[in-house]
Amino acid sequence: MTASERFRIDRDGPVARVTLCQGAEGNTLAPPDMQAIGAAIRAEGSDKTVKLVVVTGEGDDFCLGRRIVPGVTPPANARAFRERVADAILGVYENLRMTPVPVLVAVQGRAKGFGCAFAAQADVTIAEDGARFSMPEMDGNLPPTLAISAALPKMPAKAVLDMVLTRDEIDAQTAHAFGMVSRVAPKGGLTAAVDTYIAKLADRDRDALVAIKEYMRLAPTMDLAGQARYGANLIAVEMTSQDKT
């Protein structure tokens, strides 16, 4: 299969929908798939008519992690791993951060490894009651430092470390308590919860949404005074925009 066959893109008014569409395979993604979906999310969110990007997965599970392609030789050394695998994974996280508008991820079933980190990195994550999250890489004594890099900006360090060291699955309620999940939808109510969230954003000004996303991305890197000044500048620009009526 080509990377484009792993997901599809649809438009619903101001919403770009990206759907992982290989549910029978757990919506796993190989590095080329990751590069393609990361670029697609960022491109959709950069369209001036789009206010929100929503990522969902077909089937029982949101995403079971990295796909191992039969017949493809594993990287032979550290440099090859960095170029063929790590850079693709880190590129997804970067594209999620740099997409101008919010990215919402809806999780059902399991989000495992890369799928868990993807859900953590999103701006908004809605999990269905019964969803489960895990970082099992240490089962094979592989330190999941890439996944940790995605989770740390969103979650307390001790919560991330607990998931990494124990490899235990956590439920949606625990993921919410840890800060990985924004909201927990009732069983069978994930689609309705996502639609409700979309309705809250669809009639908002795109520039305001972009400003919020930018502030949330950059403010944590500043000291308190810098956060305040940058926030004042952003809101001043938004309030005085020539497009406002």
Rank of each mutant, 00 (worst) to 15 (best):
D61N: 14
T166Q: 04
T73I: 02
T245E: 15
T19I: 10
M135Q: 11
S241F: 12
A211C: 08
T19F: 13
V124Q: 00
Y215M: 09
K213A: 04
P153S: 11
G26C: 11
R204N: 12
Y197T: 00
I170H: 02
L165E: 14
V237C: 15
V55I: 14
A16C: 10
Q35G: 15
K51H: 09
D10W: 13
V105Q: 01
I126L: 13
E137T: 01
I212N: 09
E5L: 15
K187S: 09
F178Y: 10
A111R: 01
M1P: 14
D87K: 01
G109E: 12
T221W: 11
H176P: 13
A86C: 05
L142K: 10
A24N: 04
A127H: 03
L90D: 05
A111T: 02
E169C: 03
E25T: 00
R84V: 05
G71D: 08
N27H: 02
F114P: 11
V92A: 10
R11G: 14
F178P: 05
D47W: 06
G57R: 12
A86W: 02
A185F: 09
Q227T: 06
A36N: 08
G113E: 02
G130Y: 01
M239C: 04
C63K: 02
A76P: 13
N141P: 07
N77W: 02
K48L: 12
M34V: 06
M155K: 08
L96F: 12
K200S: 14
V160N: 11
Q227K: 12
T240K: 15
M138P: 15
A106S: 04
M180H: 05
D47S: 10
G115S: 04
L165I: 12
A3C: 14
M138Y: 08
G109F: 01
A202H: 00
G140L: 01
E214H: 07
V55R: 03
T2E: 03
A117H: 05
T145V: 13
L201M: 12
G23T: 01
R84K: 15
Y215S: 04
S182L: 03
P136R: 02
P153I: 03
F7K: 09
M98C: 15
M155G: 06
A211H: 14
A199H: 06
G189I: 02
F114W: 10
